[in-house]
Amino acid sequence: MRPILMKGHERPLTFLKYNREGDLLVSCAKDHNPTVWFADNGERLGTYRGHNGAVWCCDVSRDSMLLITASADQSVKLWNVQTGAQLYTFSFNSPARSVDFSVGDKLAVITTDPFMGVTSAINVKSIADDPSQQSGESVLTITGPTGRINRAVWGPLNKTIISAGEDSVIRIWDSETGKLLKESNPEVGHKKQITSLTKSADGSHFLTGSLDKSAKLWDTRTLTLIKTYATERPVNAVAMSPLLDHVVLGGGQDASSVTTTDHRAGKFEAKFYNKILQEEIGGVKGHFGPINALAFNPDGKSFSSGGEDGYVRLHHFDPDYFSIKI
């Protein structure tokens, strides 16, 4: 399994997203240009130019026509995936941190950071079929959690919104009324900032990664803690295989202290765990900085990782990966 090293970004990676077919991979980085690649051979298709700040997150619509990106330049932009044309810009008064399309792609949930006295917020925008009809009005705005909200995603049937962030609490909100429905149990929940959150393919459960050196698997509907995966490093990124019962955790020591120690001390490995037994089954080395982003190809046969080192590494699994037995 020789990985494909994808050079294109000049700054640390922040987020990776495959489209539904798994033929395209969109990468976001702290440089201002989200990039789209062929997910098969790692060839660069193009970049989306227009942002004026780090791009933190993105999502691709189900039909792979529309790309939405959230940036620290206090804007969220809609793009035509194919042409790279900028279709619309949502403006905010603080940096945008995460975006997620709803089922049906008619709504998007956007989180914004606390900034210059503005508190963090979860915004719901409706996405028009025809970009020329797009409006910037929020359908719903939720505020409340203190600190940054690192990720917000849609729950089943768009009825709920799941958010997680700096205060290490996972919350489920009613997406109609904005009412807080559930909070994660602080006894069993994360002890430090939650850095990442990813849903399973069918949306029935989700995985969170935290700086408390663990990742946890939750039931989407009841917010029941199902599994905990303990590691030796702060977790920056998590991914779940759609094919096998595997989860991948990426992370490493804080970027600011990386240069002070041996490269092995950093543990910049993508660690594979058995989803059910919670046991480590392997690791993929390669990055020489912490891993900030992980994504599985929807076919489960390859995955990619993005690092603080500015590289995306695309890994196609060897045949024997599919026959791992525990």
């Binding site: 049906g104 768009n158 039931d219 989803k275 059910i276």
Partner: peptide, 30 residues
């Protein structure tokens, strides 16, 4: 291990049922 697998199986089955139930609504959303 057997216990963990059984437990997991239970979750998965539950999710499958729910997923199936919500199928039509999902179609409507799409």
């Amino acid at each position: 291990r057997r216990m963990l697998k059984d437990e997991w199986e239970k979750w998965v089955n539950q999710w499958k049922v729910l997923h199936e139930e919500e199928k039509l609504q999902r179609q409507a959303l799409r």
